[in-house]
Design a protein around this nucleic acid. Sequence first.
DNA 1: TGTAATCTAGAGCTAATACG
DNA 2: CGTATTAGCTCTAGATTACA
Length: 347
Amino acid sequence: MDSEAQGASREKVRTESERLERRRESRRRYRERHADELREQSRQWKAAHPEKVKEYGVRYRAAHLEQIRTSNRESARVKRAADRKSVASAKRRREKGRERYAADPKAHREYQRKRRAAQRAADPEGYRKAKKQRTKRWRDSHRDEQNAKLRAKHRDNPEVKRAAAERYYAAHGDEVRERRRAYYWANREQQLETQRRWRAREKRRREAGLPPRRLHRVTAAERAANASEAEEFFSRARTREEVKQMRRGPRTSTVELAQWNRASVRARLASAISADSDAVKPVAASERRRESENLTARGLKAKVAAAEEERMDAIARAINDRLRQTPRRAQVHRPGHAPPPRTIDNV
DNA sequence: TGTAATCTAGAGCTAATACG
DNA sequence: CGTATTAGCTCTAGATTACA
Protein backbone atom coordinates (compact mmCIF):
# COMPACT_ATOMS: atom_id res chain seq x y z
CA MET A 1 0.00 0.00 0.00
CA ASP A 2 1.45 3.40 -0.89
CA SER A 3 1.36 6.33 1.43
CA GLU A 4 -1.39 8.09 -0.41
CA ALA A 5 -3.73 5.13 -0.15
CA GLN A 6 -2.86 4.78 3.53
CA GLY A 7 -3.76 8.39 4.15
CA ALA A 8 -7.09 8.00 2.40
CA SER A 9 -7.93 4.91 4.42
CA ARG A 10 -7.10 6.69 7.72
CA GLU A 11 -9.31 9.52 6.60
CA LYS A 12 -12.11 7.08 5.91
CA VAL A 13 -11.70 5.38 9.28
CA ARG A 14 -11.82 8.68 11.05
CA THR A 15 -14.98 9.80 9.29
CA GLU A 16 -16.47 6.35 9.90
CA SER A 17 -15.77 6.52 13.61
CA GLU A 18 -16.98 10.09 13.75
CA ARG A 19 -20.25 9.04 12.19
CA LEU A 20 -20.62 6.27 14.72
CA GLU A 21 -19.86 8.65 17.52
CA ARG A 22 -22.45 11.13 16.29
CA ARG A 23 -25.06 8.40 16.01
CA ARG A 24 -24.34 7.18 19.53
CA GLU A 25 -24.62 10.71 20.79
CA SER A 26 -27.98 11.32 19.16
CA ARG A 27 -29.31 8.03 20.56
CA ARG A 28 -28.15 9.01 24.03
CA ARG A 29 -29.94 12.32 23.75
CA TYR A 30 -33.07 10.54 22.56
CA ARG A 31 -32.95 8.15 25.51
CA GLU A 32 -32.51 11.05 27.84
CA ARG A 33 -35.47 12.93 26.42
CA HIS A 34 -37.74 9.91 26.44
CA ALA A 35 -36.48 8.20 29.57
CA ASP A 36 -39.91 7.75 31.14
CA GLU A 37 -41.54 6.36 28.03
CA LEU A 38 -38.70 3.96 27.42
CA ARG A 39 -38.73 2.74 30.95
CA GLU A 40 -42.44 2.08 30.73
CA GLN A 41 -42.00 0.22 27.42
CA SER A 42 -39.29 -1.92 28.88
CA ARG A 43 -41.42 -2.71 31.89
CA GLN A 44 -44.32 -3.78 29.72
CA TRP A 45 -42.10 -5.95 27.57
CA LYS A 46 -40.62 -7.63 30.64
CA ALA A 47 -44.10 -8.25 32.04
CA ALA A 48 -45.16 -9.81 28.75
CA HIS A 49 -42.11 -12.07 28.43
CA PRO A 50 -41.16 -13.30 31.89
CA GLU A 51 -39.53 -16.49 30.58
CA LYS A 52 -37.19 -14.45 28.36
CA VAL A 53 -36.24 -12.21 31.26
CA LYS A 54 -35.46 -15.23 33.39
CA GLU A 55 -33.44 -16.87 30.67
CA TYR A 56 -31.44 -13.69 30.13
CA GLY A 57 -30.80 -13.47 33.87
CA VAL A 58 -29.41 -16.97 33.97
CA ARG A 59 -27.17 -16.37 30.98
CA TYR A 60 -25.89 -13.08 32.40
CA ARG A 61 -25.14 -14.61 35.75
CA ALA A 62 -23.22 -17.49 34.18
CA ALA A 63 -21.18 -15.11 32.05
CA HIS A 64 -20.34 -12.61 34.88
CA LEU A 65 -20.19 -14.87 37.92
CA GLU A 66 -16.82 -13.60 39.21
CA GLN A 67 -17.76 -9.97 38.73
CA ILE A 68 -21.09 -10.45 40.52
CA ARG A 69 -19.42 -12.11 43.47
CA THR A 70 -16.83 -9.40 44.05
CA SER A 71 -19.45 -6.72 43.66
CA ASN A 72 -21.69 -8.42 46.22
CA ARG A 73 -18.83 -8.76 48.65
CA GLU A 74 -18.02 -5.08 48.26
CA SER A 75 -21.55 -3.85 48.85
CA ALA A 76 -21.87 -6.11 51.90
CA ARG A 77 -18.67 -4.58 53.26
CA VAL A 78 -20.01 -1.04 52.72
CA LYS A 79 -23.26 -1.93 54.44
CA ARG A 80 -21.44 -3.39 57.45
CA ALA A 81 -19.35 -0.25 57.76
CA ALA A 82 -22.48 1.92 57.68
CA ASP A 83 -24.13 -0.29 60.29
CA ARG A 84 -21.18 0.06 62.59
CA LYS A 85 -21.60 3.81 62.44
CA SER A 86 -25.33 3.79 63.18
CA VAL A 87 -26.66 4.75 66.61
CA ALA A 88 -28.60 1.53 67.02
CA SER A 89 -25.56 -0.58 66.45
CA ALA A 90 -23.51 1.54 68.82
CA LYS A 91 -26.14 0.83 71.46
CA ARG A 92 -26.08 -2.87 70.63
CA ARG A 93 -22.31 -2.92 70.88
CA ARG A 94 -22.41 -1.23 74.25
CA GLU A 95 -24.93 -3.78 75.47
CA LYS A 96 -22.76 -6.58 74.18
CA GLY A 97 -19.79 -5.05 75.96
CA ARG A 98 -21.77 -4.82 79.18
CA GLU A 99 -22.76 -8.44 78.91
CA ARG A 100 -19.19 -9.48 78.28
CA TYR A 101 -18.11 -7.45 81.26
CA ALA A 102 -20.78 -8.93 83.53
CA ALA A 103 -19.89 -12.45 82.44
CA ASP A 104 -16.31 -12.17 83.60
CA PRO A 105 -15.18 -8.78 84.88
CA LYS A 106 -11.63 -9.81 85.55
CA ALA A 107 -11.01 -11.25 82.12
CA HIS A 108 -12.71 -8.30 80.50
CA ARG A 109 -10.57 -5.82 82.36
CA GLU A 110 -7.48 -7.71 81.37
CA TYR A 111 -8.65 -7.72 77.75
CA GLN A 112 -9.33 -3.99 77.88
CA ARG A 113 -5.93 -3.27 79.33
CA LYS A 114 -4.24 -5.24 76.59
CA ARG A 115 -6.33 -3.67 73.86
CA ARG A 116 -5.63 -0.18 75.02
CA ALA A 117 -1.95 -0.91 75.42
CA ALA A 118 -1.92 -2.18 71.84
CA GLN A 119 -3.77 0.86 70.61
CA ARG A 120 -1.35 3.12 72.40
CA ALA A 121 1.64 1.22 71.05
CA ALA A 122 0.26 1.43 67.52
CA ASP A 123 -0.46 5.16 67.64
CA PRO A 124 0.58 6.86 70.87
CA GLU A 125 -0.25 10.36 69.66
CA GLY A 126 -3.65 9.42 68.27
CA TYR A 127 -4.54 7.42 71.36
CA ARG A 128 -3.72 10.29 73.65
CA LYS A 129 -5.69 12.72 71.52
CA ALA A 130 -8.77 10.52 71.38
CA LYS A 131 -8.69 9.93 75.11
CA LYS A 132 -8.24 13.59 75.86
CA GLN A 133 -11.13 14.42 73.60
CA ARG A 134 -13.62 12.09 75.18
CA THR A 135 -12.56 13.01 78.69
CA LYS A 136 -13.02 16.65 77.83
CA ARG A 137 -16.42 16.00 76.28
CA TRP A 138 -17.55 14.25 79.42
CA ARG A 139 -16.13 16.88 81.75
CA ASP A 140 -17.70 19.76 79.80
CA SER A 141 -21.11 18.20 80.14
CA HIS A 142 -20.71 17.49 83.86
CA ARG A 143 -18.77 20.54 84.95
CA ASP A 144 -20.99 21.84 87.74
CA GLU A 145 -21.57 18.44 89.20
CA GLN A 146 -17.85 17.69 89.17
CA ASN A 147 -16.90 20.99 90.73
CA ALA A 148 -19.43 20.51 93.49
CA LYS A 149 -17.90 17.15 94.29
CA LEU A 150 -14.42 18.64 94.29
CA ARG A 151 -15.50 21.41 96.63
CA ALA A 152 -17.09 18.96 99.03
CA LYS A 153 -14.00 16.82 98.97
CA HIS A 154 -11.67 19.67 99.75
CA ARG A 155 -13.93 20.97 102.45
CA ASP A 156 -13.91 17.62 104.15
CA ASN A 157 -10.21 17.12 103.89
CA PRO A 158 -8.34 20.36 103.28
CA GLU A 159 -5.03 18.91 104.39
CA VAL A 160 -4.22 17.21 101.10
CA LYS A 161 -4.79 20.32 99.09
CA ARG A 162 -2.89 22.48 101.50
CA ALA A 163 0.12 20.19 101.28
CA ALA A 164 -0.04 20.23 97.49
CA ALA A 165 -0.17 24.02 97.46
CA GLU A 166 2.80 24.13 99.78
CA ARG A 167 4.78 21.85 97.51
CA TYR A 168 3.78 23.88 94.51
CA TYR A 169 4.86 27.08 96.18
CA ALA A 170 8.19 25.58 97.17
CA ALA A 171 8.83 24.59 93.57
CA HIS A 172 7.38 27.63 91.77
CA GLY A 173 7.68 30.40 94.36
CA ASP A 174 9.36 32.80 91.98
CA GLU A 175 6.63 32.48 89.40
CA VAL A 176 3.92 32.87 92.00
CA ARG A 177 5.47 35.99 93.45
CA GLU A 178 6.00 37.44 90.00
CA ARG A 179 2.39 36.76 89.09
CA ARG A 180 1.15 38.31 92.28
CA ARG A 181 3.18 41.48 91.71
CA ALA A 182 1.88 41.73 88.14
CA TYR A 183 -1.65 41.33 89.46
CA TYR A 184 -1.11 44.07 91.99
CA TRP A 185 0.11 46.55 89.42
CA ALA A 186 -2.60 45.63 86.96
CA ASN A 187 -5.28 46.27 89.60
CA ARG A 188 -3.55 48.79 91.81
CA GLU A 189 -6.56 50.98 92.57
CA GLN A 190 -8.69 48.04 93.48
CA GLN A 191 -5.94 46.54 95.61
CA LEU A 192 -5.52 49.76 97.55
CA GLU A 193 -9.26 49.86 98.08
CA THR A 194 -9.45 46.30 99.42
CA GLN A 195 -6.54 47.06 101.70
CA ARG A 196 -8.35 50.13 103.02
CA ARG A 197 -11.55 48.19 103.61
CA TRP A 198 -9.71 45.38 105.29
CA ARG A 199 -7.94 47.74 107.67
CA ALA A 200 -11.13 49.55 108.52
CA ARG A 201 -12.81 46.25 109.23
CA GLU A 202 -9.94 45.07 111.43
CA LYS A 203 -10.14 48.31 113.34
CA ARG A 204 -13.84 47.83 114.04
CA ARG A 205 -13.20 44.24 114.98
CA ARG A 206 -10.57 45.17 117.53
CA GLU A 207 -12.72 47.93 118.91
CA ALA A 208 -15.56 45.48 119.35
CA GLY A 209 -13.20 43.10 121.09
CA LEU A 210 -13.94 40.27 118.69
CA PRO A 211 -11.50 37.47 117.95
CA PRO A 212 -9.68 37.51 114.61
CA ARG A 213 -11.70 34.67 113.14
CA ARG A 214 -15.28 34.13 114.05
CA LEU A 215 -15.92 31.02 111.99
CA HIS A 216 -13.93 28.01 111.07
CA ARG A 217 -14.63 25.13 108.77
CA VAL A 218 -15.56 21.82 110.27
CA THR A 219 -14.20 18.85 108.40
CA ALA A 220 -15.99 15.56 107.98
CA ALA A 221 -13.78 13.95 110.62
CA GLU A 222 -14.59 16.67 113.15
CA ARG A 223 -18.26 16.46 112.36
CA ALA A 224 -18.23 12.72 112.96
CA ALA A 225 -16.36 13.16 116.24
CA ASN A 226 -18.77 15.88 117.39
CA ALA A 227 -21.76 13.78 116.49
CA SER A 228 -20.55 10.74 118.37
CA GLU A 229 -19.65 12.82 121.42
CA ALA A 230 -23.09 14.37 121.40
CA GLU A 231 -24.69 10.99 120.95
CA GLU A 232 -22.77 9.61 123.87
CA PHE A 233 -23.60 12.59 126.04
CA PHE A 234 -27.30 12.79 125.35
CA SER A 235 -28.15 9.14 125.15
CA ARG A 236 -26.41 8.19 128.40
CA ALA A 237 -28.89 6.96 130.95
CA ARG A 238 -28.35 8.56 134.37
CA THR A 239 -28.69 6.40 137.36
CA ARG A 240 -31.00 7.48 140.14
CA GLU A 241 -27.91 8.11 142.25
CA GLU A 242 -26.35 10.37 139.64
CA VAL A 243 -29.52 12.40 139.33
CA LYS A 244 -29.65 12.91 143.10
CA GLN A 245 -26.00 13.93 143.05
CA MET A 246 -26.68 16.52 140.41
CA ARG A 247 -29.64 17.90 142.35
CA ARG A 248 -27.51 18.21 145.44
CA GLY A 249 -24.61 19.73 143.48
CA PRO A 250 -23.80 23.45 143.32
CA ARG A 251 -26.32 25.61 141.49
CA THR A 252 -25.26 27.41 138.32
CA SER A 253 -24.46 31.00 139.15
CA THR A 254 -26.36 33.81 137.44
CA VAL A 255 -23.16 34.98 135.82
CA GLU A 256 -22.44 31.55 134.37
CA LEU A 257 -26.00 31.27 133.18
CA ALA A 258 -25.79 34.64 131.45
CA GLN A 259 -22.52 33.63 129.81
CA TRP A 260 -24.07 30.41 128.63
CA ASN A 261 -27.04 32.29 127.20
CA ARG A 262 -24.75 34.66 125.30
CA ALA A 263 -22.76 31.72 123.94
CA SER A 264 -25.96 30.14 122.75
CA VAL A 265 -27.02 33.29 120.93
CA ARG A 266 -23.64 33.48 119.27
CA ALA A 267 -23.85 29.85 118.23
CA ARG A 268 -27.28 30.40 116.74
CA LEU A 269 -26.04 33.44 114.85
CA ALA A 270 -23.05 31.55 113.50
CA SER A 271 -25.36 28.82 112.36
CA ALA A 272 -27.62 31.33 110.64
CA ILE A 273 -24.68 32.94 108.90
CA SER A 274 -23.34 29.62 107.73
CA ALA A 275 -26.76 28.77 106.36
CA ASP A 276 -26.64 32.05 104.46
CA SER A 277 -26.29 31.80 100.69
CA ASP A 278 -23.05 33.72 100.96
CA ALA A 279 -21.57 31.08 103.21
CA VAL A 280 -18.13 31.39 101.71
CA LYS A 281 -17.84 35.05 102.54
CA PRO A 282 -20.01 35.67 105.58
CA VAL A 283 -17.83 38.57 106.59
CA ALA A 284 -18.13 40.18 103.20
CA ALA A 285 -21.88 39.69 103.38
CA SER A 286 -22.14 41.40 106.75
CA GLU A 287 -19.94 44.15 105.38
CA ARG A 288 -22.39 44.70 102.57
CA ARG A 289 -25.26 44.80 105.03
CA ARG A 290 -23.46 47.39 107.12
CA GLU A 291 -22.83 49.58 104.10
CA SER A 292 -26.37 49.34 102.94
CA GLU A 293 -27.47 50.57 106.37
CA ASN A 294 -25.36 53.65 105.86
CA LEU A 295 -27.22 54.64 102.73
CA THR A 296 -28.89 57.98 103.25
CA ALA A 297 -31.81 57.60 100.85
CA ARG A 298 -34.77 56.95 103.12
CA GLY A 299 -36.83 54.72 100.84
CA LEU A 300 -33.90 52.58 99.96
CA LYS A 301 -32.99 52.30 103.61
CA ALA A 302 -36.48 51.14 104.48
CA LYS A 303 -36.47 48.71 101.60
CA VAL A 304 -33.14 47.25 102.71
CA ALA A 305 -34.42 47.00 106.27
CA ALA A 306 -37.55 45.21 105.12
CA ALA A 307 -35.52 42.79 103.04
CA GLU A 308 -33.24 42.12 105.97
CA GLU A 309 -36.25 41.61 108.22
CA GLU A 310 -37.66 39.11 105.77
CA ARG A 311 -34.36 37.30 105.51
CA MET A 312 -34.08 36.95 109.27
CA ASP A 313 -37.66 35.70 109.38
CA ALA A 314 -36.85 33.07 106.80
CA ILE A 315 -33.87 31.92 108.83
CA ALA A 316 -35.98 31.80 111.96
CA ARG A 317 -38.64 29.79 110.16
CA ALA A 318 -36.03 27.35 108.92
CA ILE A 319 -34.64 26.87 112.42
CA ASN A 320 -38.12 26.56 113.84
CA ASP A 321 -39.02 23.97 111.25
CA ARG A 322 -35.96 21.97 112.12
CA LEU A 323 -36.57 22.03 115.84
CA ARG A 324 -40.35 21.81 116.15
CA GLN A 325 -41.83 18.44 116.93
CA THR A 326 -45.33 19.01 115.59
CA PRO A 327 -46.16 20.27 112.12
CA ARG A 328 -46.71 23.97 111.63
CA ARG A 329 -50.33 25.04 111.74
CA ALA A 330 -51.86 26.68 108.70
CA GLN A 331 -51.69 30.49 108.89
CA VAL A 332 -55.14 31.99 109.41
CA HIS A 333 -55.31 35.76 109.35
CA ARG A 334 -58.41 37.15 111.01
CA PRO A 335 -57.87 40.84 111.47
CA GLY A 336 -59.14 42.07 114.78
CA HIS A 337 -59.14 38.63 116.33
CA ALA A 338 -56.63 37.27 118.71
CA PRO A 339 -55.28 33.81 117.86
CA PRO A 340 -57.43 31.04 119.38
CA PRO A 341 -56.32 29.94 122.82
CA ARG A 342 -54.26 26.80 122.96
CA THR A 343 -56.05 23.66 124.04
CA ILE A 344 -55.06 20.05 124.13
CA ASP A 345 -56.51 19.57 120.63
CA ASN A 346 -55.04 22.75 119.30
CA VAL A 347 -51.32 22.77 119.85
C1' DT B 1 0.44 53.66 104.10
C1' DG B 2 1.89 51.37 99.95
C1' DT B 3 3.72 47.24 98.31
C1' DA B 4 5.06 42.47 98.45
C1' DA B 5 4.44 37.90 100.01
C1' DT B 6 1.82 34.10 101.58
C1' DC B 7 -2.32 31.45 102.16
C1' DT B 8 -6.63 29.58 100.55
C1' DA B 9 -10.55 28.11 97.77
C1' DG B 10 -12.12 27.07 93.46
C1' DA B 11 -11.57 25.43 89.13
C1' DG B 12 -9.02 23.48 85.07
C1' DC B 13 -6.08 19.91 82.89
C1' DT B 14 -4.07 15.37 82.38
C1' DA B 15 -3.56 10.61 83.06
C1' DA B 16 -4.53 6.14 85.07
C1' DT B 17 -7.95 2.97 86.09
C1' DA B 18 -12.44 0.84 86.68
C1' DC B 19 -17.04 0.01 85.27
C1' DG B 20 -20.69 -0.88 81.55
C1' DC C 1 -16.11 3.21 73.00
C1' DG C 2 -18.51 6.00 76.74
C1' DT C 3 -18.89 7.07 81.52
C1' DA C 4 -17.00 7.68 86.33
C1' DT C 5 -13.68 8.06 89.86
C1' DT C 6 -9.34 9.38 91.68
C1' DA C 7 -5.07 11.78 92.20
C1' DG C 8 -1.67 15.10 91.25
C1' DC C 9 -0.44 19.45 89.28
C1' DT C 10 -1.34 24.01 87.78
C1' DC C 11 -3.42 28.55 87.52
C1' DT C 12 -6.05 32.40 89.25
C1' DA C 13 -8.38 35.66 92.20
C1' DG C 14 -8.91 37.33 96.41
C1' DA C 15 -8.12 37.33 101.54
C1' DT C 16 -4.79 37.90 104.90
C1' DT C 17 -0.35 38.92 106.68
C1' DA C 18 4.38 40.84 106.54
C1' DC C 19 7.56 44.33 105.54
C1' DA C 20 9.58 48.88 104.75
